Simulated assay, not measured.
Amino acid sequence: MTRIQQVHWELNMDYLGHPYYVSGNAIYHALGMQLEHDVHQHINASHGMFVPGQFGTFPEEHSQSGIRPYMGSALPDVESYTDLFLFRHPDHPWLLDSRPRDALNAHDIRIQSGMPALAHETIMGRPDDHRKQQQTTRWYVTAYLHADDPDLLPLGEDVLDGLQFGGKRNYGFGEVSLKDTQVRYFPTGVSSGAKASL
């Protein structure tokens, strides 16, 4: 059996780094600040995908169905291997059509110290006839951890919380807090064929 730990972080501060994802290397090195060397060298991390905390609906291929409020803000249950990939698409196909899809598929950029940074929240105005004049969407980072020695997983919440990704970390940029994590087991033959996709 292959053990995979899903991790879902909430962005607390703007992120200076790759505009489409947090690299697995960045996640790996952030974990290295929290782990002992002999444990750290056996951990592997996927790219971390940016996910908006918005209303969404499960796609047909998912084991669950229906609409969920603020779907991107937490990890849904995983019952099959394909369920793992819900948040892995940068165009967020799970977003409801009634949500501002075009705006959320282009992550908001703010200039920080002369450099472009991905905003940790997106604030959009709303029409005058709406109850609230603006809507704020929080952003999350979802990734997978895998270990050469499966007994090393799951990593504890104290290790996964308060990490920093990207540039200018000494100034607080790229700070995340742990929002959700879960461990799933899959037959080795299934996951090894798709390991590169994780």
Rank of each mutant, 00 (worst) to 15 (best):
Y28G: 05
R3S: 14
I111L: 00
K195N: 04
Y28K: 12
P187D: 07
P52T: 07
T188H: 10
Y28I: 06
R131Q: 15
D83R: 12
Q54L: 11
S23F: 00
M1V: 02
T82V: 13
L11V: 01
M71E: 07
T82R: 05
G72Q: 03
I109Q: 08
P76Y: 08
S113E: 10
I27R: 07
S192W: 15
N44V: 10
M13V: 13
V39S: 06
Q6C: 01
T181Q: 03
Y21I: 00
P127F: 12
R138H: 14
M71G: 05
P116A: 09
G48M: 05
D148M: 09
A30H: 12
H120P: 00
P187N: 09
T57D: 11
S73M: 10
P90Y: 11
R169Y: 00
T188M: 13
L145D: 08
P187Q: 13
E175D: 08
S192E: 11
A147M: 11
V39D: 11
Q54M: 13
I111A: 01
R169P: 06
T122A: 06
D97L: 11
T57Y: 02
E175S: 14
L155G: 06
A117S: 09
G53Q: 02
L118Y: 07
H146I: 15
P93A: 05
S192D: 13
R68D: 00
P150C: 08
R138E: 05
S46D: 00
F85C: 02
N105P: 07
F58K: 04
D129R: 13
T181M: 04
L16I: 15
W139Q: 02
W94T: 05
S73N: 04
L31S: 01
P187S: 04
L163F: 10
P69H: 03
G24F: 02
I111W: 07
L35R: 03
D149T: 13
V7N: 01
H37S: 13
S177Y: 07
F186Y: 06
P90F: 00
L118F: 13
P93G: 00
Q41W: 10
K179F: 02
R3F: 15
D161L: 05
R110T: 12
H42D: 09
S192P: 00
N170I: 07
G172S: 01
A106V: 15
V78M: 12
F87Q: 07
H130E: 09
G53A: 10
I67S: 07
S63C: 11
F87H: 09
L11A: 05
W139L: 04
F50H: 01
S23N: 03
I109H: 07
H120N: 12
R99A: 06
I43W: 11
A106W: 06
Y171H: 12
D77P: 05
G156C: 06
P76M: 07
D77S: 15
V183T: 06
D148W: 05
E175W: 14
D108W: 14
L75C: 09
D128A: 15
M124C: 10
S191Y: 14
E36A: 12
A45M: 02
